[in-house]
Design a protein around this nucleic acid. Structure first.
Lengths: 326, 326
DNA sequence: TTTGTTTTGTCAAACGTTTGACAATTATAA
DNA sequence: TTATAATTGTCAAACGTTTGACAAAACAAA
């Protein structure tokens, strides 16, 4: 691959001049500039960003740590992150951590080794200490990581409230919530709390089914089938849309009619769900705004590592009413 | 961040020795090794990979260029790529090119600048020349890029045949295919050809509806509705599963019963579809095998840039029969 | 012409590693 | 004890840039 020196020789100038052209530094005549640009084009030259970064420039790389991009929610989020960061001249290193703490740790090390400018993290199998040691600007999605790492999330509590209210409004009496197993610091806890609060206020009761996040869809489906077979719920809130799809699937098998026999509401409201399952009522997280906010904060931190940021940024959710709660 | 010298000082050895420990080069006593490792741990040291790569080591970075990770197919593929590459010690830079040639070009330049070890590309808005100029090991998914860039794909032709055969076996007489607009070099062309071949052989006719890839789901839905409203097809092959979902959606609206009035078969067979729409008959691409193959070839090329590879590697597809063709 | 300004060049240090040559020290075996 | 091998150290060059100091050259204006 061509180097600075190759360009310098070809353009008949010094290496310093070429560097000046690239960095637009010092004073340069139009003539030299065109000569240099011509040589760069001719040799298809790309400045070695390793060398540049070593010399102190930013790498323009951001690490993205998420549970996994196979899930439409995180898929859309990554797409959005990529899109917005690209426009600002950054590239992303994608890290699917799943729920593998060892992998997440390894990635954290690698991101340090690669001298990324910052990290957006939405998957957290590690303890606080490990995140504190990283020493890079980090923004967290939806989970507490450590002192001084801002959390951006949507209003999970209000989302839970909305879900309860819309099931009640649709006439449900016997409410059921299906959620991931209650881990500390999990955002789904707040969805549950919001839901709970509405019902408590009206002196109403509800049933709770917890299914571990890591369960396969088949397992989840089975547990849901068991639940539905009892036929003692007429309104279900799933704390994510995919689980709601499983409910629809199982309900069909058991010949339970939605919305006639059962009202259903999900959570997330990805483009995918809106396009391919518009019938599902859901609480939409404003993914695009969340991403904009995270990037905004991250770039601020990159610019000034000591800048003070809030510890929480909560964005509003929106109820999207479909046919499952009519 | 700690550097080699910091470690050397802390461990009371020379920088060279530390480097030797890290690279396991030269002869070293256990005692020194433990001292050095202790210092590394103490300071949470990560060798600066910029400096290492600059000095000639590989970057262990692979560029992934795809249309976009919001789509479940590519989502799963990226996840698989990430997973397999991680195990081999590589990290990925994710590039969603969409159908934006300018963006793809910019990414290609950036990947060169970052000195990635290789590229996996599955999105191709650019002409051959531009890919040839890159001068890095590249493997292509499912599309012709340029001389000497191997293509890994599933057996699209056979997939098309399978689709036709299973619609016929299910008793369909009036066949319809819905596919992305026919671009040259697109793999969906082969799916069409396989489909066609089966019907030709039996002297049967079929209708063709082309909808540009870039159309929004709403637009696609409208065109499908129009089509279904004519009610002159009783078997439809969609060259991707998402379009098949739209057909199901529109059919429901028009009160066309699947599979009673209409047989339906999709294409791709992602985990997502298998988990959340098991009723859909589809042709499954072996994503995991495709990825394994691509990575295998890519690493070969990285190891030996001049190694001879086939120009095509075709992996078998599998019919997954659901309720939509019974 | 002189003076001043703009452009370009030379040189060198720095970023954090790796690696080779070579020497010095220590440990082990005969 | 000496000979040999293993270990560690010093030194320096290299990777491809950026950036500053400084000087030389080119050009313009007075």
């Amino acid at each position: 691959m061509a180097t600075l020196d190759d360009i310098a020789k070809m353009a008949g100038v010094s290496a310093t001049t070429v560097s000046r052209v690239i960095n637009n530094y010092g004073s340069l005549s139009e003539k030299t500039k065109t000569k240099v640009f011509a040589a760069m084009k001719e040799l298809n030259y790309q400045p070695n960003s390793l060398a540049r970064s070593l010399k102190g420039k930013k790498t323009q790389l951001i690490g993205i740590i998420l549970p996994g991009v196979g899930n439409p929610f995180f898929g859309q989020m990554v797409q959005e992150i990529e899109d917005q960061l690209f426009k600002k001249g950054f590239r992303i290193i994608l890290c699917n951590a799943g729920n593998d703490a060892e992998k997440e740790r390894a990635y954290l090390r690698m991101l340090m080794a690669n001298r990324v400018d910052g990290i957006i993290a939405g998957s957290h199998n590690l303890n606080i200490e490990e995140y504190q040691k990283v020493g890079l600007p980090i923004i967290s999605f939806d989970r507490y990581l450590s002192e001084n790492i801002p959390i951006v999330s949507s209003d999970n509590y209000h989302g839970g409230q909305l879900a309860a209210l819309s099931l009640l409004a649709a006439g449900s009496k016997k409410l059921q919530i299906i959620t991931g197993a209650n881990r500390p610091n999990s955002p789904t806890n707040n969805r549950l709390s919001g839901f709970q609060e509405v019902l408590n206020r009206q002196n109403l009761d509800f049933k709770l089914l917890e299914i571990p996040f890591s369960s396969s869809p088949n397992i989840k489906g089975l547990k849901i089938k068991e639940l539905l077979a009892k036929r003692d719920a007429d309104g279900i809130f799933c704390t994510d849309d995919l689980t709601a799809l499983l409910v629809m699937q199982q309900a069909k098998e058991l010949d339970i009619k939605i919305p006639e026999d059962l009202k259903l509401i999900g959570y997330d409201g990805t483009n995918f769900i809106q396009n391919y399952h518009p019938e599902l009522t859901t609480i939409m997280q404003p993914i695009s705004d969340i991403v904009t906010m995270m990037i905004d904060l991250l770039l601020k931190r990159i610019d000034d590592p000591d800048c003070k940021l809030e510890s929480n940024y909560t964005l509003p959710v929106k109820l999207i009413t479909g046919a499952t709660t009519i």
